[in-house]
Amino acid sequence: MNEAISVSGLVKTFGRTRALDGLDLTVRPGEVHGFLGPNGAGKSTTIRVLLGLLRSDAGIARLLGGDPWRDATTLHRRLAYVPGDVTLWPNLSGGEVIDLLGRLRGGLDPRRRDELLERFELDPKKKGRAYSKGNRQKVALVAALASDAELLILDEPTSGLDPLMEEVFQEYVRAERGGGRTVLLSSHILSEVEALCDRVTIIRKGRTVETGTLSELRHLTRTSIRAELAGPPDGLENLPGVHDPEVKDGTFKCEVDTARLDGVLRRLTEIGVRGLVSQPPTLEELFLRHYQDDLRENGQGGSPGSPGGGGAEAGSR
């Protein structure tokens, strides 16, 4: 039980809505963990349960070895949180909010605070009501990053930041990982996830649909292949892992589950290959596949049960 966060079978209902429906999430110490899912999938609800702001209806949630609801206060000393939608007190200046949140958590490093203010180009003298969305987000980020918390919980922390500031943010998160801190990063920005995260968990409708390292997940998606063949494409269509095969004028096109690529290539070379174009799977494809599961449920995708059910739509975008 030395995981930073371990959640299993988490259920949370709001009236008739089942916001979390048996969610699982494991974050190991020292990793940056991407937490993804379409809008309304339950990311913020999970985070609020982990922060002891909401009480789960069923399932187990452990945070830094404690119970997030019962031990909230002591656990919160060891973590810092950046909400997705930062609202500030209209008549407190940004600098005051940063200091206050730091002190409430149990202290912050003044040198680091000043350095962060400079790097994020944030004016701490403005009152809360005068900040733009991006600047409000920076206030919360500076307060969190200037702390010495061992766990950072970031809920879409870069929404509203410009690309330059996004770069600064990524630099600091990388440094955090280097310093042995654990980060749970909920995000929609795929490049950010790809650049920062060791492992990711994808959720949908309150359930975990995929979890693992990025290369493991890449493995679960499909490579698209287009081959000019020397002979007739006998038996190719029925190979395991082949989807949406298409034969036209001696050219064979299909999508192959990346894990089954080997067998397909072997058969292709047996037939004889004159030309071959293969496109590696992209993360976008992976995410879109999960984000678009509604389409699959409506019967517009490939065979149910295969890991790449909706890849065709994803790939064609």
Binding site: L53, A72, T73, T87, W89, L101, R105
Partner: peptide
Amino acid sequence: TGQRAEPVLATAVSR
């Protein structure tokens, strides 16, 4: 409701 309670309650401040 103004979501200013959340960041404070996420620090070492009890309800």
